[in-house]
Amino acid sequence: MTADAGHGQRLTELVRASADSLIDRWVDAVSAQLRGRSTKAELERDFRELFEALLPLIGLDGRDISGPEFGDIRSWLDEYSRSRVRAGFTPSETASSVFSLKREVFDLSASDDDPKVFRQVLAFSGLLDALGLWTFESYARAREEIIKEQSEQLLELTTPVVKIWEGVLAVPLVGTLDSARTQVVMEKLLQALVDTGSEHAIIDITGVFAVDTQVAQHLLKTVVAARLMGAECIVSGIRPQIAQTIVALGIEFGDIVTKASLADALRHTLRDAQVRGAADAVRGEVG
């Protein structure tokens, strides 16, 4: 649908003829709001791209921008919003980049007494309102996605699987354990067992603040999964407070080897590896 007969042609001509000065004033207005946090050269580059995307849309009914004719500008605003999130701008600062064009267009058309231009300016103002709101919402979506990505990356960094000896892996855990993190521990440990062919794994929870029923169950599942992969798994670093909690919760570790410290677990593992090596040597001689 069009704003009126003429499809915004008069306003388009007016805006196109004054493009350079209009963009300059637009850049100055936003630059003042950002107080130098973005250079005028960067703003001019972005605003010229946005300006070219806006020109074909002048005169269109902007109350609904979900149509295919708005696809390109929606995509541009999505990317612009994402870049603004990464650069540390606020959602208001990001959306104001769009809203600020309204005043410049109003000032540009103020001396034109053609009623059609006035109606076209009002329609264009509505379009900018819709695009500004889209920018605000797009910023919120992008921020959520980036926060999720950063959380996943942080989760990966805080659950390292370390090869401390030939055939021996260790997973030193620090902080709070929850379902998501213990799932990552299991996945990374099992993959490391496959990649290295290790037969021993130590899960050290010295730095874990607390263990509840759910966390304990996840640890037990991790140990069982490692056994199914042919590896012996030891849980170390069970401090007195955590041991009391485990007993109070009635959690049974069964035949799972537990040690008070990582050093004790490592000594046990190396001793077990030596015994197995000696046994294999004997079997080889007998054979």
Results as ranks from 00 to 15, higher is better:
residue 31 S to A: 14
residue 210 A to P: 01
residue 158 T to L: 10
residue 230 G to Y: 00
residue 1 M to Y: 10
residue 158 T to R: 08
residue 259 K to Q: 14
residue 10 R to K: 15
residue 20 D to T: 13
residue 99 F to P: 00
residue 134 W to R: 15
residue 86 R to D: 14
residue 72 D to F: 12
residue 53 A to Y: 07
residue 258 T to E: 02
residue 30 V to L: 11
residue 11 L to I: 03
residue 202 I to H: 01
residue 168 V to Q: 00
residue 22 L to G: 02
residue 177 L to R: 04
residue 284 G to A: 13
residue 116 K to W: 07
residue 122 L to V: 12
residue 142 A to I: 07
residue 150 Q to P: 06
residue 69 E to P: 06
residue 201 A to D: 01
residue 41 A to Y: 05
residue 59 G to M: 02
residue 96 S to V: 07
residue 267 R to M: 10
residue 59 G to I: 01
residue 23 I to L: 10
residue 188 K to I: 00
residue 120 Q to K: 01
residue 114 D to K: 01
residue 82 R to I: 10
residue 174 V to F: 13
residue 129 D to I: 08
residue 126 G to T: 10
residue 31 S to P: 07
residue 259 K to M: 11
residue 200 H to F: 15
residue 77 L to Y: 06
residue 154 L to M: 13
residue 87 A to T: 06
residue 63 R to G: 13
residue 253 F to H: 07
residue 277 G to I: 05
residue 145 E to N: 09
residue 95 A to R: 11
residue 45 R to W: 08
residue 166 E to Y: 03
residue 96 S to C: 08
residue 285 E to V: 15
residue 66 S to G: 14
residue 237 G to H: 02
residue 98 V to I: 15
residue 9 Q to L: 12
residue 254 G to W: 05
residue 90 T to A: 09
residue 218 H to R: 10
residue 280 D to N: 14
residue 21 S to K: 13
residue 79 E to N: 13
residue 97 S to C: 14
residue 186 M to N: 03
residue 49 E to M: 11
residue 179 S to G: 14
residue 119 R to Q: 13
residue 172 P to I: 03
residue 17 A to W: 03
residue 254 G to R: 05
residue 115 P to I: 01
residue 48 R to N: 09
residue 155 L to T: 12
residue 81 S to H: 04
residue 206 T to Y: 04
residue 273 A to C: 02
residue 195 D to P: 04
residue 257 V to T: 15
residue 166 E to Q: 11
residue 280 D to K: 15
residue 226 A to T: 00
residue 90 T to V: 04
residue 14 L to N: 03
residue 265 A to Q: 02
residue 7 H to G: 07
residue 284 G to H: 10
residue 106 F to Q: 10
residue 46 D to E: 13
residue 40 K to A: 09
residue 54 L to V: 06
residue 195 D to L: 08
residue 91 P to G: 06
residue 68 P to K: 06
residue 191 Q to T: 08
residue 165 W to Y: 07
residue 75 S to A: 15
residue 262 L to W: 01
residue 129 D to N: 15
residue 118 F to Y: 13
residue 88 G to D: 05
residue 180 A to T: 14
residue 267 R to L: 08
residue 109 S to E: 04
residue 96 S to P: 02
residue 201 A to Y: 03
residue 174 V to D: 05
residue 223 V to T: 05
residue 127 L to T: 02
residue 225 A to M: 00
residue 254 G to S: 05
residue 91 P to I: 04
residue 50 L to T: 05
residue 49 E to K: 15
residue 229 M to P: 00
residue 125 S to M: 08
residue 136 F to I: 09
residue 178 D to T: 06
residue 214 Q to E: 15
residue 282 V to A: 12
residue 147 I to S: 10
residue 26 W to N: 02
residue 184 V to Y: 03
